[in-house]
């Protein structure tokens, strides 16, 4: 039993796929799927025009598992993809995600990252990174308008940050349950 637990711990400490190329393909597929889910089904969980940023959670997740460099590239790609599918100004989401994931990358620890995903620390990282993401995103989002940034950010930026953090509880619990076995 002890050996079994040890083996599982070893497995969870390592990335699921040992082949880097396959891993990146898997991440790309996850990003694509998340984008599709975001576009098609986000309306079901949108509360008062506030929706969680699923792509950001995935990007932070990848940055914590793979490190800053991989996270940066994936965040840029994911942001660009989201800009296209959401008909946003091209580069806005890419920039916001790159910056927030760069910060998330500082929490990367080769030996502890996968453990961290199942703890409250993951939620705090999502909260902080989402805050930075929304700060950057909403700054560029309302720049061409006359809307007051502060009031708009308080209303939508903070709400989106909190909602994203709440949704991040789901992967956190999944990982926490996984690490129990």
């Amino acid at each position: 039993m002890a050996l079994f637990r040890e083996q599982n711990t070893l497995i969870t400490d390592q990335p699921v796929l040992s082949n880097p190329a396959l891993r990146y393909i898997m991440y790309a597929v996850i990003i694509l799927l998340t984008s599709v889910i975001h576009v098609l089904f986000m309306g079901f969980i949108t509360v008062g025009s506030v929706a969680p940023d699923l792509l950001l959670i995935v990007c932070i997740w990848i940055a914590l598992v793979e490190g800053q460099m991989t996270g940066l590239l994936i965040a840029f790609g994911a942001g660009l993809l989201f800009d296209i599918v959401s008909a946003d100004v091209l580069g806005t989401n890419a920039l916001a995600k790159v910056l927030s994931v760069f910060i998330a990358g500082y929490f990367y620890n080769e030996n502890m990252s996968r453990h961290m995903l199942g703890t409250y620390r993951f939620l705090f990282i999502v909260l902080f990174c989402s805050f930075i993401h929304n700060l950057v995103y909403f700054f560029f989002y309302i720049k061409p308008t006359d809307i007051n940034f502060f009031s708009f950010f308080i209303r939508y930026g903070i709400a989106t940050t909190l909602y994203t953090t709440v949704i991040a509880i789901v992967p956190m619990l999944v990982m926490a349950r996984k690490s129990e076995y």
């Binding site: 460099m69 940066l72 590239l73 840029f76 660009l80 800009d83 580069g91 806005t92 890419a94 760069f102």
Partner: peptide, 14 residues
């Protein structure tokens, strides 16, 4: 360097 490059590309796209 990657971050700087991606930020520059993002601004260019914007």
């Amino acid at each position: 360097l990657t971050l700087s490059l991606l930020i520059v590309v993002s601004f260019l796209l914007m």
